[in-house]
Each structure stands twice: as C-alpha cells, then as structure tokens.
Design a protein around this nucleic acid. Structure first.
Lengths: 191, 191
DNA sequence: GTCTATAATAGGATAGAC
DNA sequence: GTCTATCCTATTATAGAC
C-alpha cells in the first residue's frame, strides 16, 4: 500500500482503538494486528506511538479553534453564534466520533510540546466562548447568569455528547441537534 | 502504620494519581513513591492494582445508584427531584473530585466482573434519571422535549463539572450550585 | 513496504529476610 | 509492615533481510 494511504489508515485505526480501549491500553502490536501487518512495519510510516496520537488530536484541536475564532468575529446575534457552535460540536460528534473522543480523553498523553500547544488552543477556545456569552449578556440577549459557570456547564454538555454513540444510536443527527439546541438555548421549564 | 489506615491512604493517593495521570500511566512504583514506601510493600495491603481501582470506583458508583433510587421514589415534584440530583453531583464534584474523575475516566480498566457490575449500575442510574424526566413531562412540569436526548445532555453537563477544579477554583460550591441549577433547570434565554 | 529477530526497558507481582 | 532481590511478561523501537 502507498505510503500516505497507509499512514492515514494507521491514524484512523489508531483513533478507533484508542477511543475504545484508551491510548495506553493499545499496544503497537494491537494496532498492527488490526491492520493485518506486523508492529515493526508501522515504523515505516510513523516515527512513534506518540506521533500517532498527535496526528489524531492536533488537527482537530486546530479545527475547533479556527471555527470559534470565525464565529466570534462574525456579525450574527449571540444566539446564532451559539447555534453555530452547537452545530459544529454535533457534526463532529456524529462524523468524527473517534477523533473527538480521543482528543477529550487522551490529550494528557501527548508529549510535552504538543500538550502545551493543545492546552493553549483549548484555553483560547474557552476564552472565545466566554466572550460570546458575555457579549450576549451585555446586549440583553441572554439572561445574566455567571458567565464563567455558564460557559463551563454549556461546554461540558457539548463536549461529552459523543457518549451517545456508545449507547443510543437510534437518533439521527438532525433530531439530536434540534433537541440539544432547544434545551441548551431555551431551557427546560414550561412557560 | 496500621493495616486499615494504610489501605485507605493507598486508595486515596491512588485516586489522586490516577486522576492526574491516568490509571495505566501510574505504576505501582509511582504509587509507592508517593507514599514513601517500596512497591512490594503495597501488596501487604492490597492484592493488585486492579483491586485499588475497584475500591475507588465501585463504592462511589453504588452511592450514586442508591441516591437516585431514593430520589425517584420520593414524593417531591420533578423539579425538586432534579434539584436533589444536581446537589448530589455538585457535592461529589467538590468533595470527592479525585474519585469522581477516576470513575468517569477509568472505569474501562476495571476487571471483567467489576466492569459488568459498574455498567449495570450506570444503566440503572440513567434509566432512573430518564424516568424522572418522563414523569415531569407527563405531569406538564417540564417542556416536552425528547426525553432521552434531554437526559443524555443534562447528565453530560453534570458529570463533567469536575473539570472545574483543574481550571476555575475561584467559585464556591454554593455559587456554582446556584448558577448550574438556574441554567440547567430554567434555561438561557431572557423572558 | 513488510518481514524476522532482537535490543532495551518498564511493568505487575512474589519470596523470604528483618 | 517494610525491605531487597528477583521473576516473568509486555512494551516501544531498531537492524537488516527480502
């Protein structure tokens, strides 16, 4: 198989296994077995196990950062901005489940350099999100709750929707998006 | 040190390290170092690394199950029941942070028997929670959103509030509880 | 690009002295 | 209850043949 095809195949399979078993629990032999080759052959395509993890995580982390930076500076209302962010998380939850779960659960195993960059990106993401929330409160679009606590709670909900796929595959992406949007934006109580 | 004191000290220290580094990343030698003894000495108090993980997780899992079973069968309104559940999660988030994070992140590494029991408890918990939500919708106390999607989203938010302690130690438990309650129960939009 | 063989290390766990 | 010494296995990664 060609070098670059095999490489992306390795990364994809690794993401799947890392998500299912955890990064440390998956050996290079396990990964190779799943690809039908021997462990030593992996090193013709990647330089280390850590590199695979970085290839999985860093790209997704940058995608999220770029997305929220664009949303933050566009001219939409706060509710529309929050809707765009929910949409992004839902798309990723449904179409990049393995990578998203890997990122959320295994980033601690990145090497020092990548982990530092990852945490910078995550902090930046959370700051951008907080800014959007605070803007919405200032313009009166959103209720004046504590913005930091609200951000953290909102993001906790969004980031962990991938647990879905392990348990409730019965709902379509559209169905989930509408309900999640409705709940997270409008609230729970009647009237 | 007496046998039972040392044992609970081992479990507590392990919970802290497992949370910080991940179960697989913490060796018995790391754990022993943190306790100021040698790895071999640990085995005078516990039988295996897996047993330590089970001691951390299973007790907390049962506590959550018993709590929601009691809440489900009491006579309070749905909103009061949800409030009791939020309170329980907040108490645990603030006072048993290490154990809670361990349970959420490391349960996959339980041995087969414990993992099976853990998943039964978790399923039962989610069913009880779903029942409470569905009841609230039937009596008209809650808006009629999709109950499964709502449960999943609500629980995603609650279960992951422990990320807090890693980042925003500035808020008191009471302050967080009131804001989280307000948001998760009442909603975000003004009016 | 994949293989076999192997180096180098780290891990969980036990035996037996004190 | 803790120690030293050690066993056994599994791991990441490399060397060199095909």
């Amino acid at each position: 198989m060609s070098r670059s095809n095999r490489k992306s195949q390795i990364v994809q399979t690794a993401a799947h296994l890392f998500r299912k078993e955890g990064y440390q629990a998956v050996s290079m032999r396990d990964l190779a077995d799943n690809l039908g080759i021997k462990a030593a052959s992996l090193y013709n395509h990647i330089s280390s196990k850590e590199e695979i993890l970085a290839l999985i995580i860093m790209d997704m982390a940058r995608t999220f950062s770029e997305h929220i930076a664009e949303v933050r500076k566009n001219e939409n209302s706060s509710v529309d901005k929050l809707t765009e962010i929910i949409d992004m998380h839902l798309r990723t939850t449904f179409h990049k489940t393995d990578v998203l779960a890997c990122m959320n659960r295994e980033w601690k195993h990145l090497n020092d350099d990548y982990r530092k960059t990852y945490l910078q990106l995550r902090n930046q993401y959370e700051n951008d999100f907080l800014q959007i929330i605070e803007n919405g409160m200032e313009t009166g679009e959103l209720r004046s709750l504590n913005p930091k606590i609200l951000s953290n709670t909102f993001l906790s909900a969004l980031r962990n929707l991938y647990h879905w796929h392990d348990r409730d595959p019965e709902f379509s992406e559209d169905r989930v998006r509408e309900s999640v949007k409705d709940y997270l934006l409008s609230g729970l109580l009647l009237g």
